[in-house]
């Protein structure tokens, strides 16, 4: 069982209210997309869920326990890939394992087993600077998976990619998450991306961010139903 419940969270940073009373949840194996205008407070929300910062009010429950303000439960991929320039791809990806005290050899072996799935086979000894944008994103994603496959926070992981690469990554990521049965929270401000990936969508308001609406999707939604949804969401974001 992997689930996250965010309960009535608010946060003010430097006299600026960024998050106003947000409640949301992710169920086991669910792919939940958070859609919000830029600068509304999405990344701040992830910082709170990951435990990096404390909310002023509200709690974060992970698998039934209170983890508010405590790190270490979820895999968090931030907006930037944050690969270490000084380490090669293999070491970068192995970092979560090494930090957990795993033996270097064993950690590298685990990384090796996954490289092919992430399209990084043969690139393990490259430095991040030598990789394309898509490969860097995949390396950062694999590093996140190495920390845990159960609960993932992904903050606009594909924002910097071109449209074609991005489409490919969508299909690939969706498959990956289904096969690992991961519970995912995924931030974007791209409606197409949200409709493509989500089981459920939360639409956030402008800053201070609050939940404006929630939509359920399923595989059987027809094209016209999705178009209708798109128009609804667009009108909400205006």
């Amino acid at each position: 069982m992997s689930e996250v419940i965010v309960e009535k969270v608010s946060k003010t940073m430097d006299d600026l209210q960024v998050i106003a009373n947000i409640s949301l949840s992710v169920k086991n194996g669910e792919f939940v997309v958070i859609l919000g205008p830029s600068g509304c407070g999405k990344s701040t929300l992830f910082h709170i869920i990951s435990g990096l910062i404390m909310p002023d009010i509200g709690r974060v429950y992970i698998n039934g326990s209170d983890w508010t303000g405590k790190t270490g439960q979820v895999g968090y991929m931030q907006q930037k890939d944050l690969l270490l320039a000084s380490k090669n791809v293999q070491t970068n990806i192995a970092i979560p394992l090494l930090l957990k005290g795993e033996e270097t050899k064993l950690a590298y072996k685990k990384v090796q087993e996954n490289l092919a799935d992430f399209g990084l086979k043969g690139f393990e000894n490259y430095y991040p600077r030598e990789l394309s944008g898509g490969m860097r994103q995949r390396a950062a994603l694999l590093r996140t998976f190495m920390f845990t496959k159960d609960i993932l926070l992904l903050d606009e992981p594909f924002a910097s990619l071109d449209a074609i690469t991005r489409r490919k990554m969508h299909l690939w990521l969706k498959d990956l998450c289904i096969s690992y049965n991961s519970s995912v929270l995924f931030i974007t401000h791209d409606i197409e991306e949200a409709l493509m990936l989500a089981d459920r969508i939360y639409v956030l308001s402008n800053r201070p961010a609050s939940v404006k609406a929630e939509f359920h999707l399923n595989l059987h939604n027809s094209f016209s139903e999705k178009e209708l949804l798109k128009i609804k969401i667009l009108s909400l974001l205006e």
């Binding site: 270490g72 320039a85 380490k87 979560p96 930090l99």
Partner: peptide
């Protein structure tokens, strides 16, 4: 953010110094 990432993965400040700050 790099330091925050390490923090989110449960790194000690010595780990962060050794692997992030010093290199």
């Amino acid at each position: 953010d790099q330091v925050a990432l390490f923090h989110s993965m449960g790194a000690s400040s010595w780990d962060t110094f050794k692997m992030v700050r010093f290199p």
